[in-house]
Amino acid sequence: MIHAVLIFNTSGVARLTKFYSTLHRSSQTLVHQIFSLVSTRAPGLCNFLDAPELESFLTAQEADGEKLRVVYRNYATLYFVFVVDSAESELGILDLIQVFVESLDRTFENVCELDLVFHFDEVHHILSEVIQGGLVLETNVEEIDHQVQRAAKARKESFASANPLSLGSGVAGGGSRASGLSSLGWLTEKLAGVGTK
């Protein structure tokens, strides 16, 4: 099972934290600890990390032998980190991170860190179409996007009915995005200078 999904930037500021099992200690410390584990690793190293340090945070009392592994992937300025137990395939999770990022990209068109900041709710909605309760819900990017669109449409309709004057600004790829910000660019692996806040 997936115990946590975290996104933080290269300065360690969390952009998304989602826990699927009850936390036993502060989430802030957990994020910091994972950040310090992950950020010190050189690019060529593997994407998996044994994390005995994290067990006190996440494992339930009865699961004594359960080993947690951190699977992470770095896209430009952001780290996508999944904390999983041994029931998940490491490479499978790596693929899942890719699916999640591709889904974000579908919705935000060239997603960048700012999208995650200003549209934090939407990011959560997308995540909820990929993972539910710590388990993989859907892996087909088409289908994920379809669901996200469906929800967005429903929201837009209810919003329009509430504010007859609203023009119902678009959902995907809003024009409000600050221009000049580079995207995550997982294909180009281009580093972008997005601020830490």
């Binding site: 200003f118 549209h119 709710d121 929201r155 959902v171 809003g174 806040k197």
Partner: peptide
């Protein structure tokens, strides 16, 4: 969507603009 709430967008922008932790708090 968050951008549909101007107050919220302003709030987020303010926090991003805060230069130090104290200002943010």
């Amino acid at each position: 969507m968050a951008t549909n709430m101007r107050g919220l967008t302003q709030f987020i922008a303010d926090i991003r603009g805060a230069r130090v932790r104290e200002l943010e708090e």
